[in-house]
């Protein structure tokens, strides 16, 4: 790409990092919960719908990372515009802005997956209490939500010249 600056490259790296870390956290988390639910379904295939809810919960971190990456692309003009020639400092700022959603997503995704996996075992025995493990999982997700919040606020606050 002609005329791309180092700043643009760093900003792109930031966006990619947000998507990567969030996606990794979600992939591991959904994987953990998915394994647990397959075990339960081998005994009781009728629980598919309930378990799907629990398995899909740790998927939000990936979505938060994805939308942060998208916001970065929109901001630097890689989508729907011409790529801006960013200074190196602005690029680094955008990279830093991506870190909260990325790292909170990675760690909370994994741990939310663990909570959901044990929730799956709980639902196997107490199907009526489905919402309780869902709430437990939401307690973990809080930190991904806070990470996303700061990332959005930072991205919003950084002005391009």
């Amino acid at each position: 790409m002609e005329g791309a600056t180092l700043g643009l490259a760093i900003a792109t790296f930031g966006g990619a990092l947000a998507v990567l870390l969030g996606g990794m956290g979600s992939a591991i988390g959904v994987g953990l919960a998915g394994q647990a639910s397959s075990g339960v379904m081998s005994e009781d295939p009728g629980k598919f719908g309930m378990l799907l809810l629990l398995v899909s919960l740790p998927g939000t971190q990936g979505i938060y990372g994805f939308l942060s990456g998208f916001l970065v692309m929109l901001k630097v003009g890689l989508i729907g515009g011409t790529p801006a020639s960013l200074t190196t400092v602005t690029g680094l700022l955008l990279l830093a802005a991506c870190l909260p959603v990325g790292f909170t997503g990675l760690v909370s995704g994994i741990h939310q997956g663990k909570v959901c996996a044990s929730g799956v075992y709980m639902v196997a025995k107490q199907p009526k209490d489905l919402m309780k493990p869902v709430i437990m999982a939401a307690l973990v997700e809080t930190y991904a939500v806070l990470g996303l919040l700061i990332t959005i606020l930072l991205l919003n606050g950084i002005t391009l010249k």
């Binding site: 979505i63 938060y64 939308l67 989508i79 729907g80 809080t142 939500v145 919040l149 959005i152």
Partner: peptide, 26 residues
């Protein structure tokens, strides 16, 4: 401070809706 999630979740919905529409346009 925990109520700040209202902002984050609200924004997430609007941004994803926007993403869908942008992809549609492309």
């Amino acid at each position: 401070l925990s109520y700040s999630r209202l902002l984050a979740l609200g924004l997430a919905t609007s941004v994803i809706a926007m993403v869908v529409n942008t992809i549609c346009q492309t």
